[in-house]
Design a protein around this nucleic acid. Structure first.
Lengths: 187, 187
DNA sequence: GAATAAATATACAGATCGGTCTGTCTTGTC
DNA sequence: GACAAGACAGACCGATCTGTATATTTATTC
């Protein structure tokens, strides 16, 4: 079964949104890039914002899937998995198409906290945090919630320093800090 | 001496850019809000991008000024100043008009690393990092550069978690992690 | 092969974008 | 009072924006 027009549309939009941003990517560019007609887009999506939401949902799904596999394939021991988070980030940052976190970017362009797009970005972070908390719990942290939040700070900070400041080694710095925090939390 | 038209323009633009984003803020809105004529704007700035750069420069100047005063007024001892960073962030996040970091947002909308606006954002982070490194050096850290980078990760991560995920206590989590890292680095 | 559904191309609407241009009016200075 | 500088208002430009309408082509299915 050939990929549906809708899927193709979401994939193309996803790529352009990540590369150029949301406001800077016009409907017409998405249509030209995907070879889909305008009426087809508006049959599947009520508006550009709906398309953005679909792209964010797909990104969330793919990213967390990749992330969990990347972490779990690197280590078996729970404590090592907490550190493997930052090895996965390092791989991500080193990719040619790294352009920051799509959800941080979405929150920048849709700043009102009640904007559905901003809400979707918040939900993504909530889900990633929940996964890190699972890892922290498995590792036997006294306060898994606290450790997870601390590691999330390092992870998000690394994304920012890698993207905004171009610090290619941000994930490595974060890993070093993470080891200190994990040692402290598991002592 | 009345504030110059140019200054008023930059201030108005700064406010709107922070609140609504860069692409979402049109020239006309800035003019209407500031009561300045269009030709006056284009006499002072070659383009909208030039106005954005001026707004970023002003923001960088004001933010770092506020930040250094906020840190130094909270503590005298170098080690305590490193932790005061996160008390200052907490105050910032609690403000009614907190809308994330303008430089992270700018990098999201102007993603190409060689874009002058992205470069300006990178420079801002570089300057903040330099200040944190000074504090770390004064505190007698064995590796001041490493400690400064780790604390920067926590700070930027806190900004993201506070803005994107609406975590009001992000700065407090960061402060707790920072204490662990500082203790480890000064041991 | 006809009927049906979907996707196509194209044109268009109405608004807004960044930026230019032409004037008018105010203000300060000599 | 003459004059120049600077800011004003507002029309205007071409391009682009999201979204809609129409009419044609393609593909599937009976």
């Amino acid at each position: 079964m050939a990929p549906s027009r809708r899927d193709h549309l979401v994939d193309t939009a996803l790529e352009l949104f990540v590369r150029d941003g949301f406001h800077a990517t016009g409907i017409d560019k998405i249509l030209a890039e995907s070879g889909v007609a305008k009426m087809t887009l508006y049959k599947h999506f009520k508006s550009k914002d709906e398309l953005i939401l679909s792209a964010l949902r797909r990104r969330d799904e793919r990213f967390r899937n990749w992330f969990m596999r990347a972490v779990e394939s690197r280590a078996q021991a729970p404590r090592q998995r907490l550190l493997a988070i930052f090895d996965a980030l390092d791989e991500w940052f080193s990719g040619r198409d790294f352009n920051g976190c799509m959800f941080i970017n979405a929150s920048a362009e849709f700043a009102r906290p009640d904007d559905p797009i901003h809400v979707a970005a918040a939900e993504h972070l909530r889900l990633v945090l929940a996964y890190v908390r699972e890892l922290a719990t498995a590792a036997g942290a006294r306060d898994a919630e606290a450790l997870a939040r601390e590691l999330m700070l390092l992870a998000e900070g690394a994304i920012v320093m890698a993207h905004v400041a171009g610090q290619a080694d941000a994930a490595k710095n974060a890993r070093r800090a993470a080891r200190t925090l994990v040692d402290h939390a598991l002592a």
